[in-house]
Design a protein around this nucleic acid. Structure first.
Lengths: 220, 220
DNA sequence: GATAGTTTCATACAGCTGTTTGAATTGCAA
DNA sequence: TTGCAATTCAAACAGCTGTATGAAACTATC
């Protein structure tokens, strides 16, 4: 059916271009040129540019969340309902990092698109973003199971920092590469994931409530 | 002198609008309306929109770097040329976090503008960004002095993660607030700085070379 | 107070944006 | 084949964008 090839050609091209150049720099004419279809096809199949972006975002959002969630449940059921904190964090950041830093170009486009969407907040996406909060809450709950007794604030900060390190690694990998003159190996995806998980879990296991050396050094 | 008030009115309004809504959503007409000046004034005083953005970015970039550098040198000279790693990290992330999370609206606009500029890479800014690498290299050198014997890769990863946590905290403070339902206190700027410094320095002091529990748990 | 230089202003311009239109083409059932 | 719906297409649309223009208003010097 030719409908579907046009539709999916638009989706694929749009995702790739948005991933590469961001939302601001890509026009509908760029997309249809890359997809090899007529300009009017976008409005015919999606209604508007915003609805195209929204469909892209919703689809990928659901896929990423499912991937994360499957990893989490696998880890938890392997441990009898409670996974080590490292496994929970790995389920949270693994899918995105594997997608962005890995070699598979389709996965890479998808992951980079999501990173863009997470940063450059544009109207069609802003509305959908609320769901992500609920999704992250499930991970906070899993982390609470991994670290019983840990104050909630610590859990949230740990989750926040883990996502921060993973996202920044994807977004600004070029700066890290140039700064380190290639010493930091970003092609070793599992190594990068290990690093982020290690730092985040270390922070979560240790108390970081501002009574540590950092706060002390601040107070002279 | 009326020249300067128009010029600076444009700069102030532009910085605020860019900080609030990002580069994609703000037009010259928005800026001149907010500044209360004529449309043609932008091209008269700055030559073009891109040059306005570039001036904004260069000015703030120099100011931020100087602020960071002064803090670093103060800490190092207090310790006889070698500062504790916590102080180095604090000098790196303190200025931005204080600017963004603090109450001073002018500083806040400046800091948020810089965060936007760091993310939404647009042509006029991309060219200037190379200087930042050199600036960060100075901090890497200071970190090396703080932690003699630490492998360079660890230094760069630590620097990268510290910036990641600070920037994400600014960029997505709303998500963290909603996720934690207000439990995480972002108004306590020094507390936030302490947290980031604590996690980053903890990671740097401990070995995170992928031989830790995270990597082990991955390998089952 | 006339003059020269600077700054402001309303207005126009060309280019690009997302969207619409109506005709042409295609695919498929009767 | 005929008829009908779905899809594609070239062309045009109105709106907004950054920029340019030339006249008007201002400022300061003589």
């Amino acid at each position: 059916m030719s409908t579907d090839t046009t539709r999916s050609a638009i989706l694929t091209a749009a995702e790739r271009l948005y991933a590469e150049r961001g939302f601001g720099d890509v026009t509908l004419r760029d997309i249809v040129a890359a997809a090899g279809v007529n300009l009017a096809a976008v409005n015919y199949h999606f209604g508007s540019k915003d609805e195209l972006i929204a469909e892209l975002f919703v689809t990928r959002s659901i896929a990423t969340n499912r991937e994360r969630f499957n990893e989490l449940k696998a880890a938890e059921s392997a441990g009898g309902g409670r996974a080590p904190i490292e496994a929970v964090l790995r389920a949270l950041i693994g899918p995105t990092l594997r997608g962005c830093l890995g070699q598979d170009s389709e996965r890479s486009d998808a992951a980079r698109f999501m990173i863009r969407a997470a940063i450059e907040t544009i109207p069609p996406i802003r509305k959908i973003k609320n769901r992500e909060i609920d999704h992250l809450r499930k991970f906070a709950a899993a982390m609470r199971r991994s670290l019983p007794g840990k104050p909630d604030a610590e859990i949230y900060w740990g989750l926040h920092f883990a996502l921060a390190m993973a996202q920044q690694t994807v977004r600004d990998s070029e700066r890290l590469l140039r700064l380190s003159e290639g010493i930091c190996d970003l092609d070793d995806v599992d190594g990068v994931i290990d690093r982020v998980v290690a730092v985040a879990s270390l922070a979560l296991k240790t108390g970081t409530t501002g009574t540590g050396e950092a706060a002390v050094s601040r107070r002279r």
